[in-house]
Computed example of a mutant assay.
Amino acid sequence: MPETLHEQLMRMASHVRDPQRHAPPPGIEARRLAVYRQLFFGNVESLLAGSFPVIRASLGTLRWRALVEAFYADYRSHTPLFTELGGEFVAFLEQGVKVGHPMPLWLAELAHYEWVEGVLLLSDSSDPPHDPEGDLLEGIPLLSPLAWPLAYRWPVSDIGPDYQPHEAPAQPTLLLVRRDADLRVRFSRLAPLAHALLASLQAHHWAGRQHLERLSEAVAVDSATLLPQGLALLENLRAQGVLLGTRA
Rank of each mutant, 00 (worst) to 15 (best):
N236K: 11
L176C: 06
L234V: 10
P192V: 09
A248M: 02
Q210Y: 03
S216Y: 05
A220W: 06
L237K: 04
G245W: 01
A194K: 11
L244N: 03
H204N: 13
G230E: 11
A181F: 12
S223M: 10
Q229K: 12
V219Y: 14
H166D: 11
R247P: 00
V185P: 06
L237H: 02
R186G: 03
G230F: 12
G208T: 04
L197Q: 04
L190P: 01
E167M: 02
G230R: 06
E235H: 06
L193S: 10
H204Q: 15
R184W: 07
A199E: 11
A239R: 14
A194L: 07
S223H: 12
T173D: 10
A207P: 11
H204V: 04
R238L: 03
L234N: 05
L183S: 12
Q171I: 06
A170Y: 04
D222E: 15
A203V: 02
E235P: 04
L183C: 10
D222Q: 13
L243D: 02
R178Y: 15
N236I: 00
F187P: 08
V219G: 08
L175G: 07
D222T: 08
Q171W: 09
R214A: 14
S200T: 05
P192F: 07
A220Q: 14
H205N: 07
E167H: 08
F187D: 01
L226Y: 08
G245T: 00
A181V: 08
H211I: 10
H195A: 10
R179E: 05
A199V: 02
P165S: 11
A239D: 13
S216R: 09
N236P: 00
G208L: 05
L233P: 08
L234T: 11
Q229L: 14
H195S: 10
L193M: 11
G230M: 10
S216W: 09
L197R: 00
A218T: 07
V185F: 12
L193H: 07
A168Y: 09
R247C: 01
A218V: 02
A194S: 15
R247S: 06
R186N: 06
T246A: 01
Q164G: 14
P192K: 07
L243G: 00
A196S: 15
H204I: 02
Q171N: 13
R214E: 13
S188A: 12
L174K: 08
H211R: 05
Y163E: 06
S216C: 12
A194V: 03
H204C: 10
L198D: 03
D182K: 05
L234G: 04
H204F: 15
N236G: 12
A220T: 14
L193A: 10
A199S: 12
Q210T: 14
L244Y: 08
P172L: 05
L198F: 06
Q210P: 00
L201W: 01
L183R: 12
L183D: 15
D222V: 09
T173S: 14
A218C: 02
D180R: 11
A196K: 12
A218P: 00
L244P: 01
S216E: 08
L190W: 02
V242I: 15
Y163F: 15
H211W: 06
A220F: 07
H205T: 09
R178Q: 14
L197P: 00
A203N: 05
A218R: 12
P165R: 10
R238S: 03
E235F: 09
V221G: 03
D180S: 10
